[in-house]
Amino acid sequence: MEEEWTPKITLFCCNWCSYAGSDDAGVGRKQQPPSTRTIRVMCSGRTDPGFVLTALMEGSDAVLFTGCHIGDCHYISGNYKAKKRFEMLKEILDEIGLEDERLQLQWISASEGSEFAEYIRKVTEEIKAIGPSPLRQEWMK
């Protein structure tokens, strides 16, 4: 029996907001597709562009940056740095021919469990629509 293809999405969560947000989504029993692989980092500013590129090369169909809302960062300016990195990475990935949806940035606070679940549902649908990443190798399952 052929299974329906589900995308693999790497999700970077910051420890203080979006990780707590995803926890809130679980506690609140919000339904979301099992497409994400969550990596917790202490701050969204810790998300090195190298992490993102490695995730894409290793077969992720999309990478999501999530963190505290601007102004709410536990470390004051971490999410500003994440935003800048995201913008520059976006330009590069667009230039080498990856779709816009494959790299996304979303601010999620600790109490936004339902928004978190909604966002994951939305992204999974988007990635399903555009199909597997061109960077994915044939031997990657």
Partner: peptide
């Protein structure tokens, strides 16, 4: 930084070494 995430035995479709360099020098 460009060789931090990269290994010559990687079989990625695009060299991560060059991608990090592209980003760094952008």
């Amino acid at each position: 930084k460009c060789i931090d995430f990269y290994d010559p035995i990687d079989s990625y479709k695009i060299s991560i070494y060059h991608l990090v360099r592209l980003l760094h020098l952008s």
